[in-house]
Design a protein around this nucleic acid. Structure first.
Length: 94
DNA sequence: TATCTGACGATAG
DNA sequence: CCTATCGCCAGAT
């Protein structure tokens, strides 16, 4: 069997995200079976308009550099809290 | 095979 | 909180 490409793996992950859900680039990479490829995920999303790229942010909740206005707008439209240019992340208590 | 690029991430200061 | 660094990855050259 021909192994699916990196981009196809990322599509699989993004396609099952629903409005209001947000993931980090690193999480997407992990779910796609490519731990550590967070940077590659960003590069791909940068030139992919068929996917919900706005539902992906950095590990600290930062939005897309240079396009924060639109990014925040799209997120808020789905009920996601955004403040000071970043998504209000859930506190992951351990 | 070697380098370079970039919507990343963790860490040190 | 911020910047500087370094490590990592997939693609393009």
């Amino acid at each position: 069997m021909e192994p699916r490409s990196f981009e196809d793996e990322v599509r699989r992950v993004l396609e099952r995200l629903v409005p209001g859900m947000v993931m980090t680039y690193g999480e997407v990479a992990l779910e796609a079976g490519r731990p550590g490829a967070a940077r590659a995920v960003g590069n791909f999303l940068a030139r992919c308009d068929e996917l919900p790229w706005w539902r992906v942010v950095t590990a600290t909740g930062r939005l897309v550099p240079g396009n924060e206005r639109e990014h925040a707008s799209r997120l808020r439209a789905e009920g996601v809290r955004v403040a000071n240019g970043r998504v209000v992340m859930n506190l992951r208590l351990r």
